[in-house]
Design a protein around this nucleic acid. Structure first.
Lengths: 190, 190
DNA sequence: TACATCTTTCAGAAATTTCTGAAACTAGAG
DNA sequence: CTCTAGTTTCAGAAATTTCTGAAAGATGTA
């Protein structure tokens, strides 16, 4: 691996973290390299800089493509494929979350739905189903929220995130505004 | 494996998803079983119901304990350890997020901080560092938000999540309230 | 057509992770 | 102290994942 020390440390870290993030070392390193590279890279650049075999890099790139995490581009008079990550890091995060949801959440959601359709035979099954229902509701709530948030413009999103718990203050204010003197809420609120 | 079909399907699913979630099959199945079991279980119950070896279950339970995901409890006149998950599923989610952050985000944050302290030698390193800085800022923003949110009471949290993008409406309202006629913001905002 | 350049596939080697059974360990009861 | 009922550890077997080199495929050029 021939990289400036700073870059190398970054790339190696992403390789190590790869396994914790459910991708492998090669894929982690390739992505890290693409992310910090000032220019698009071709597969052979990666082979040279990371020291993996050509085929390993090829498979890693396929994997990244299946995650929609890289852009493929070409240069005039050059048959090679060049790869980059989006310049906008928020775009990267959005894609990452979207894909992880697709792989890590959606299958569970659909199994839960399926199992909740069934009629429980025993008390044990009934209890199991209650527990699954709780889980299903929670995941649906989170997904609903996510589905709203992902449509927000980045600027708004940043604004919201920066506020953190201050949103709560606003909610409390809203509650005061819309709550009748006796403590009950107005009809519109729920 | 001797379990009611409904329970079995659930448990098997969590086993399969285990690898995508960075835990293994055994751990996934054990947790699923504990989650839907109406009563606390001891290790031998799990051996019987899941068909793993005793030692495998033991290691799986240790792993779950290291994630703070199970509670250990004892019965009078019984030396065995019994295990459960918290009744409150929100508590489970909170723990899960906390632990994943600890393992999947914090190490990256600290490497980034470290690398950003260094003085870049070349233009390439300078560019790499800029890119790392973007990443660092984004992660800090998310962590700051998370740090606020995790302290919220569950009821408030649910309220917030249910609102989804409606929060945006409130923000816009707030903007209107605090924005001077000319379009500039008041000093307090920003 | 033959050739050059680049990419992909794939069988098997290498490495890593998971799982098991046997042995070691722990702590209360007699 | 010894027995018993439990838990943990650990070396190696089994399974899975990752990685490689060689071969095949694709595509543009002469």
């Amino acid at each position: 691996m021939k990289l400036p020390p700073l870059v190398q440390a970054f790339v190696l870290h992403f390789g190590e973290m790869g396994s914790r993030w459910g991708i492998n070392r090669t894929v982690g390193q390739i992505y890290a390299l693409l992310y910090i590279a000032p220019e698009p890279l071709c597969a052979d650049d990666m082979v040279e800089q990371l020291g993996f075999s050509r085929s390993n890099v090829s498979i890693g790139l396929k994997e990244l493509q299946s995650w929609n995490l890289v852009r493929l581009l070409h240069r005039p008079d050059d048959r090679r494929d060049f790869y980059t990550t989006p310049d906008d890091i928020w775009q990267i995060v959005r894609t990452l979350v979207e894909e992880r949801k697709k792989r890590e959440v959606d299958p569970t959601l659909s199994i839960l739905r399926e199992l909740l359709m069934q009629t429980p035979g025993t008390a044990e099954e009934r209890h199991a189903q209650d527990r699954m229902r709780e889980m299903h509701e929670l995941i649906e709530l989170l997904c609903g929220w996510y589905d709203d948030v992902r449509r927000m413009e980045t600027e708004r999103l940043v604004q919201l995130l920066s506020m953190g718990a201050k949103v709560q203050k606003i909610l409390e204010m809203k509650d005061r505004l819309f709550t009748l003197p006796g403590g009950r809420r107005t009809e519109k609120e729920g």
